[in-house]
């Protein structure tokens, strides 16, 4: 087929932020399907809750302090996360480094707290269906926490190398976006795991 050039796009930028970029939509899609995973797991919990006459089964509810401490730290972590976002948009390599290191440290603290939370669930996965579903949900969220922490650490290291090119700042903003998802996904799980058994 013959072709006629009717438009030139040579002046367009080579990377963008947010919904302009492809990876943002990729992150969005993964959040949607992982969010669905959480929703299904919550559904399974509520189903088992509904069909069992006693809840929790053969255990006392989880101790409140680890989950509550995590929730507070998760919520506060949004602040440095937004600073990382702003620094990436400004393409300020120095500040991006600082905030990514801060976010990595926060992630490590949360992961350690998560260990305590497992220890204070007051049930084992093989005790009862209650124990199984609690471990499943907490495990699922921990996988997300660990994955995003890994991603943050890799990005932080990358920012100290010669690969810290402008388009990597777009990756940083996607990582920020994903962290917010990990935080938001936690909130209903906190209510479900720590408070529903006390109803």
């Amino acid at each position: 087929m013959k072709q006629t050039i009717v438009r030139r796009v040579g002046e367009l930028p080579t990377f963008g932020f947010g919904p302009q970029s492809g990876p943002w939509w990729g992150a969005m899609s993964f959040m949607a399907l992982e969010g669905m995973g959480f929703a299904i797991a919550i559904g399974a919990y509520l189903y088992l809750y509904a069909v069992n006459p006693t809840w929790p089964i053969g255990a006392s509810p989880p101790d409140l302090w680890p989950g509550t401490a995590e929730t507070i730290i998760f919520l506060l972590s949004i602040i440095p996360n937004q600073y990382a976002n702003r620094a990436a948009h400004q393409q300020d390599r120095h500040k991006v480094r600082v905030w990514l290191v801060v976010m990595s440290l926060i992630g490590i603290v949360l992961l350690i707290l998560r260990g305590f939370e497992f220890a204070h669930l007051n049930t084992r996965w093989d005790n009862s269906a209650y124990g199984s579903v609690v471990w499943l949900i907490l495990g699922l969220h921990t996988t997300h926490l660990a994955t995003d922490l890994g991603d943050t650490i890799v990005l932080a290291v990358l920012m100290f190398t010669s690969h810290a090119r402008p388009r990597r700042f777009s990756d940083v903003t996607d990582n920020v976006f994903y962290w917010n998802f990990v935080v938001i996904a936690w909130l209903p799980l906190y209510v479900l795991l720590d408070w529903v058994p006390r109803l």
Partner: peptide, 29 residues
Amino acid sequence: TLPVVAGLSAERREVLLTSLAEAEPQIRE
């Protein structure tokens, strides 16, 4: 005759990203 765009790289792999609804060119990614 097919109307086409020009201005993408002939040096490296590049695709044209366009807007969600109107498909307006946004980025050479």
